[in-house]
Design a protein around this nucleic acid. Structure first.
Lengths: 224, 224
DNA sequence: CCAAAAGTGTTCAGACTACACCCATGT
DNA sequence: ACATGGGTGTAGTCTGAACACTTTTGG
């Protein structure tokens, strides 16, 4: 067990965010390259200390916005990681969150503070700082079950999308194939989508109907 | 919004435990009567600051043991409550846990520090300190869903129990009646119990077979 | 003999699974 | 013309829900 440097007199609180998107046919997380010594060149989920006059939820929203610029996406508390030796800089307890953002040509802005900001597929993660491997693993598990009984995919898809897009998103995250006919039947029966008049154009195949979610709020609905 | 007294320079961490049992045909929680000023004579779930060299999980276990003496029961992290003004004594973030303990003639020991320790039915709670009403409400919700897809009732029942005891526990917590035949069929089909040779004796009705859980570890199993 | 909980099967409806072919477009 | 994903229905199986009477004990 590493020695804890009591930089703070009591345990203090940080928030870390596992930011997911689906990109290039893979579930990916946003990681930041560390420049500080014990974790030099390792990667970590974005995070930071909770400020004295800021709620933990707000800290999570702030960090998410700082790194991605997005604000109105699904963001939920995941779990609190409180091992004594999880942070070599001091006694820091991390309240972890996870967020789902659509892959809409988001520009990642790095800063001098970090060695880079990049998406990494969850099935091929680099070496991670702190206990972030555990945190991300936990977030992936949670995301998988959450997809099955809520409508939160809305936060991974663009405003308008095809049923094929939606099914592919499920297949990528759940890592299994779904039956097209059963999937469409199920989803349409739930009445959580409304069809637009539009269809996809310019693709090398038959145009597909575009849908949008009726509600962009998380709701519990048995989906699969 | 009340003014925060910066007793600590940063936010510090406490653990609060919602301790459940089923007693007198009701789901009950263990509460402590406060003696400190802004919450004088109000009740609260047991809790305390996390010590600098103690993990948050260990703090929860410690507090549970201090108040009840029990150790090997189901104890799980619930949620972290991080509103800025949740504690008038300072910036304290609470990692809430919930525990399930069997109602086996547990003796509650009060201390000079508190005005009393008592069980209270969750459907008739007194006025609660801090945000503990929210925390307990959250714990009850979680317990209800958890009962449906895990075996955690084991931690509310004695070592040996009848199927009637088990069904009653479900009915009390879920607050709805269950069909006796369907319940027994389902539970026995899951193979999570083993029948003992024994039967209840001395009751004013037909003796019932006594069962025990095969495993006393939390497992995900579709129960209802 | 009465009260109280234990114990025990069947039927019906709805949900889930598996499965194959034609269609509209771009190249 | 062909490659690509879009779009559609049915039959069989499984699961969950509803439902009533007999048994064994203590009082």
């Amino acid at each position: 067990m590493p020695k804890i440097q009591p930089k703070y007199k009591f345990a203090v609180i940080a928030a870390d965010i596992v930011i997911f998107t689906v990109k290039d046919g893979k579930l990916q997380v946003l990681l930041i390259k560390m420049k500080k010594k014990p974790f030099l060149d390792m990667w970590a989920a974005p995070g930071g200390l909770v400020r004295p006059l800021e709620s933990v939820d707000n800290a999570a929203r702030r960090i998410l916005k700082e790194k991605t610029g997005v604000t109105d996406v699904f963001l939920e508390q995941l779990y609190t990681f409180g091992r004594v030796d999880r942070d070599p800089f001091g006694r820091v307890v991390s309240v972890a969150y996870y967020a789902l953002i659509p892959n809409a040509g988001l520009k990642l802005k790095t800063s001098a503070e970090y060695g880079g900001v990049e998406w990494h597929p969850v099935d091929k993660l680099p070496e991670l700082a702190y206990d972030h491997q555990e945190i991300i693993g936990c977030a992936v598990k949670r995301l998988r079950v959450k997809l099955e009984y809520t409508n939160v995919v809305y936060s991974l898809l663009p405003e308008e999308f095809t049923l094929g897009d939606m099914q592919k998103t499920y297949e990528i995250i759940l890592d299994r194939e779904l039956d097209k006919r059963n999937f469409r039947k199920k989803i349409l029966a739930l009445k959580i989508l409304k069809a637009t008049e539009k269809k996809t154009i310019g693709e090398a195949n038959r145009p597909a109907a575009l849908y949008r979610f009726l509600s962009h709020r998380p709701e519990n609905i048995e989906i699969l």
